[in-house]
């Protein structure tokens, strides 16, 4: 925060002129990008539909009430499948993520090349949405719960491994050093010095991802990978709006319950 000499004596300004100019240019640049983006999007939009949207929304909303509660009996199995996709997918993810995380953390990686590969696995898995993973796997394995489970697993590897390896890098190094000083081997140092320190992180990350996966697995059915999403897309395609609202209600409840469970378990761990 400089004092600037002017003819009236020193003046306090928050920033130097150069800095102000840079910030102004930044804003200008941002506005240009947003404006340009907006133009491109609006070119591809049929504004008649947008104007009509409120009426449409009202129309659909009225057709959605009341939810068709009797439909629930056909939803138990998809809900169960959804739950399994999320849970088994998380188990698969953790099984892969733990070795990847140890390979990716600077203080445990056996070699910089191994670290680079591990980091690439993490980025690739994180960048590709679970729906895309599901798309690929449905094509290869055929539609069904298996494709969904593996899709969730592959998508979660990156997320879990990233949080895990950050946890591994943040450990208290002196505890490991103390174990090293006893003459323990590298594997033993890991077992006694590192694993106990990161175990709570591992459990926390697993539960956290499970909660996210419940949400994600509700939509995999849209591409045929099992779970409640199949019913959802079927009901939308047949314009069965009371069924749609029932499914949304079920998804809402599932998500709330899983969030509650996850918060409880994490509270107990930490």
């Amino acid at each position: 925060m400089p004092l600037i000499e002017t003819s009236d004596g020193p003046m306090w300004k928050r920033r130097t002129p150069q800095k102000r100019l840079a910030i102004f240019m930044g804003w200008l640049f941002g506005f240009v990008i947003v404006f340009y983006a907006w133009r491109l999007i609006s070119e591809k939009t049929i504004w008649f539909f947008v104007q009509d949207a409120p009426k449409q929304a009202f129309d659909i909303a009225t057709r959605m009430v009341p939810p068709k509660f009797s439909y629930m009996e056909r939803l138990w199995v998809p809900v169960w499948d959804t739950l399994n996709i999320a849970t088994l997918g998380t188990v698969i993810a953790l099984a892969i993520a733990i070795p990847v995380a140890f390979a990716a953390a600077r203080n445990t990686t056996p070699h910089p090349i191994v670290r680079a590969i591990a980091i690439f696995i993490i980025v690739a898995s994180r960048s590709v949405n679970s729906l895309i993973w599901a798309l690929i796997l449905v094509l290869i394995l055929g539609p069904g719960v298996l494709a969904g489970t593996i899709a969730i697993g592959l998508r979660s590897v990156g997320f879990c491994a990233k949080l895990l390896y950050e946890g591994i890098e943040e450990i208290d190094h002196s505890q490991v050093e103390a174990i090293e000083a006893t003459g323990a081997s590298r594997m033993q140092q890991m077992l006694y010095g590192i694993v106990p320190q990161v175990l709570p992180t591992f459990a926390g990350v697993g539960v956290f991802r499970w909660d996210i996966n419940i949400r994600e697995s509700t939509i995999l059915g849209l591409v045929g990978a099992g779970g409640i999403g199949i019913e959802l897309s079927g009901s939308i395609n047949t314009l069965a709006w009371t069924q749609v609202s029932m499914i949304l209600l079920v998804i809402l409840l599932t998500v709330i319950v899983s969030e509650w469970v996850s918060a409880k378990v994490r509270g107990a761990i930490i």
Binding site: D172, S174, Q175, E177, A178, I179, E180, A181, T182, G183, Y192, G193, P196, Q197, L199, P200
Partner: peptide, 18 residues
């Protein structure tokens, strides 16, 4: 060789969760 040298640390450096 390290087995023959015991070390004691400033902040104890115990593995706290064991």
């Amino acid at each position: 060789a390290r087995r023959k040298m015991g070390m004691i640390f400033q902040e104890y450096a115990l593995v706290e969760r064991l």
